[in-house]
Amino acid sequence: MNGIINIINRELRLVRRSGYEAFMPLIYLVIILISFNIAVGYISTNIIKTIIPLMIWLSCLLVCVMNIESMFKEDYDDGSLEMSITSESNQLDFILGKILAHWIITSLPIVIFSPGLAILLGVSHGATSVLLTSLFIGTLAMSFIGGVIGGLTVSLKRSKILVSIISLPLYIPILIFGTSAVNNYNANLGYDTELILLTLILLIFLIISPYLCLKSLKISLD
């Protein structure tokens, strides 16, 4: 556990020193949301209010996809990835620490920021709280899936499109359950099942993705 906290602390300190980079996901999210709003501006306000949570979900998914590439890239470029993967006792701590740090840096700000944005755009408080819960679980699950994809593509030079092609199909179930939870709330239906299914996906990938990620990193470093 110490090893995981240590990696998270290190990553947070590095982000603090990197300056503007920490705000990039948020800026990206706002730009996507504005673009969506412009694109669907001709639709009546009531419909827009219904689809805003879905737009936020889709925007978060796109931000997550865009950020996968950076998960292990810096460590690969500076040579520290080789060192961390070689020592058997630290391997899983390193991977878990990196995935969690990546989620805290790139996804947690948008999870925290999104409800404010939703309320600002006229979404009800109830729907916003469902959105917040589903985003919290969903983005964490996406980070664990992203870790495996990031590991597999870390040695490739221009991997953004490949990462998107691999990750988007895997993220679809998360998007379906996440948006269904909010939709069901808006339609006065139960949304517990969707949140439970999201949590199940998270738990499955929490268990298997560190091992898959280690294997994919070893393939990339070979």
Binding site: R10, R13, L14, R17, S18, D77, D78, G79, S80, E82, M83, T86, S87, E88, S89
Partner: peptide
């Protein structure tokens, strides 16, 4: 053995901003 191996490649494996 594998727990005691340290590998240093062409790059130094240190964080330049630390």
């Amino acid at each position: 053995f594998m727990d005691k191996v340290f590998i240093l490649g062409h790059k130094n494996g240190i964080k330049l901003n630390l």
